[in-house]
Design a protein around this nucleic acid. Structure first.
Length: 494
RNA sequence: GGUCUCGUGGCCGAGUGGUUAGGCAGCGGUCUGCAAAACCGUGUACAGCGGUUCGAAUCCGCUCGAGACCUCCA
């Protein structure tokens, strides 16, 4: 078999080194992967689909190669402040206040909606999905460790990480490439309002004001953990003090991931992550799509076509394919034209997988080059998950399938089974595309259609084209397309 | 202002020293009663200017343009 760990050398781009590196897990065949999940205070938008699908692809491909992946994707439900400089209101708490709900009602509601959306995108469920609010004890323990190590200080019930002290012994900026001198000079002056010794410092535990609902007792009084703490604490709990892959959006690179490294390094005595992976943003008219920018398009709106910029609705698989047609480290600009092109291309690919099932092998015919296509698919994926190049190769396979189906080429039995396995692996298992839902009443419709087709056949035999065209046109209006092929007429839903 | 990334044909999007990316759209052909689908063929693409090189979209420099991060964001 070609798709084994031993046979494939996987290179991935490590943000830490800014280079593509050979992937060598700490404890093969096990792989630990942590990905920053959503803060559940609002509906998931197109931007959330990017990391969900990107790391779903990583998860699926690693699994395909034979790795045993423990995939942890968290739910942020506490500590993520609205404005910050570590001064704003908690995002969840704010939403709860605005809607007069318990914070956990907000969390539950949006978590379920997130789950529903990513399931629509055929994103596999992670191995573990920890909530920040369920790991307060672990976070307190970590804050305590950092304090004891001397890299944090308590002020008035809050605990802050001392970035400058950390930087004297380690390297703050190792991930983002930032220079601490620049950071110091660029940090907003808080005009002495802050308890922090330096604007660079960040809260790892925050005192809860009396009105603050989301609060837990701690050695420093009632409060809540700082946002960066959760990933450090939960990553460590489920994947160990050092694990293989940490993923997330590029916008989390600084300060979130940089601070995670600092916290974990101090608490555990070593850098937590070997390979950092960051997906790029989805843009709208060239500008990043983001909640705070007010240009986010929710996934529900997308699937329903309810947005002024949408010419019509797009299915979840169209969005998945659209995202996979760009390499995850490139920005991807939204447009109706691009989405419609993606939709057509995907349909062509999926139809070919159906056509493939009907192909018959021919004895003693030369190879059509399926092995080359297979090799190209693996090489693309091994090159930092280059899904667009892999998809380009799959279209080569589509050409082969259709040529055989049209009788322009013949395929031998060995290649036919190789091709079948290849398409199953890459289209469905790795890319995670789903065939169009046939619907539970497909058999009923097919029965009706066969009758209609028979009647139309009769009309055509009599050269009564007015009738045959009327049938075809009316069906098209109803969403069913007829195609007259050599071996009779077939139908498909538009 | 600082740090960084990017600018590829009508649209999207790979490639990163010499060799076809691919999809969508367009054009021509085959097939078809006509279509659709499919197949075959078809595009003086690499922001501009200069440099390195036998050779640059690919390396270097400058110019212009766009974006990201530096504050919450996937």
């Amino acid at each position: 078999m070609t798709h084994t760990i031993a046979a494939q050398k996987l290179f991935l781009y490590n943000t830490l080194s800014r280079k593509k590196e050979l992937f060598e897990p700490l404890n093969p065949p096990h792989v630990g992967m942590y990905v920053c999940g959503p803060t559940v205070y609002g509906d998931a938008h197109l931007g959330h689909a990017r990391p969900a699908i990107t790391f779903d692809l990583v998860y699926r491909y690693l699994t395909h190669l034979g790795y045993k992946v423990r995939y942890v994707r968290n739910i942020t439900d506490v500590g993520h402040l609205e404005n910050d400089a570590d001064e704003g209101e908690d995002k969840i708490a704010r939403k709860a206040r605005l809607e007069s709900l318990e914070p956990m009602e907000i969390v539950h509601y949006y978590t379920e909606r997130y789950h529903h959306n990513v399931a629509q995108l055929n994103v596999l469920s992670p191995s573990i999905e920890p909530h920040a609010s369920g790991h307060i004890i672990e976070q307190i323990a970590m804050v305590d460790k950092i304090l004891k190590a001397g890299f944090a200080y308590e002020v008035n019930g809050s605990v802050y990480f001392d970035v400058e002290k950390y930087h004297r012994q380690h390297h703050y900026g190792i991930l983002s490439g930032r220079k601490i001198e620049d950071l110091i000079s660029n940090t907003r002056d808080l005009a002495g309002q802050s308890e922090k010794r330096s604007g660079l410092d960040f809260a790892i535990w925050k005192k809860a004001e009396p009105a603050h609902i989301m609060r837990w007792p701690s050695p420093w009084g009632d409060g809540f953990p700082g946002w960066h703490m959760e990933c450090s604490a939960m990553g460590c709990k489920y994947l160990g003090t050092e694990f293989d892959i940490h993923g997330g959006g590029m916008d989390l690179l600084f300060p979130h991931h940089e601070s995670e490294i600092a916290q974990s390094t101090v608490a555990n005595g070593k850098a937590p992550v070997r390979y950092w992976m960051h997906n790029n943003m989805i843009t709208l008219n060239g500008q990043k799509m983001g909640k705070s920018l007010g240009n986010a398009m929710s996934l529900d709106d997308f699937f329903a076509g309810n947005h002024p910029l949408l010419e019509r609705a797009y299915g979840p698989m169209t969005i998945r394919f659209f995202i996979l047609q760009a390499q995850y480290r490139s920005t991807l600009d939204f447009s109706n034209e691009a989405l419609q092109a993606a939709e057509k291309g995907m349909k062509k690919l999926l139809v070919a997988t159906e056509t493939l099932k009907k192909l018959q092998p021919t004895p003693n015919v030369p190879d059509l080059g399926v092995s080359n296509i297979e090799t190209a698919c693996y090489e693309a994926m091994n090159d930092d998950f280059n899904s667009p190049v892999a998809i380009a190769s799959l279209f080569e396979a589509v050409r082969v399938i259709n040529s055989v189906n049209d009788g322009h080429a013949q395929i031998n039995a060995a290649e036919l089974s190789q091709l079948t396995a290849l398409m199953q692996a890459f289209v469905f298992d790795i890319m995670g595309l789903l065939p169009e839902e046939a619907g539970s009443d497909h058999n009923l419709i097919d029965g009706l259609m066969q009758t209609i087709i028979l009647l139309r056949q009769d009309a055509r035999a009599r050269k009564d084209y007015a009738t045959s065209d009327l049938i075809r046109d009316r069906l098209k209006e109803a969403g069913i397309e007829l195609k007259d092929g050599k071996e009779g007429t077939s139908w498909s839903q538009l």
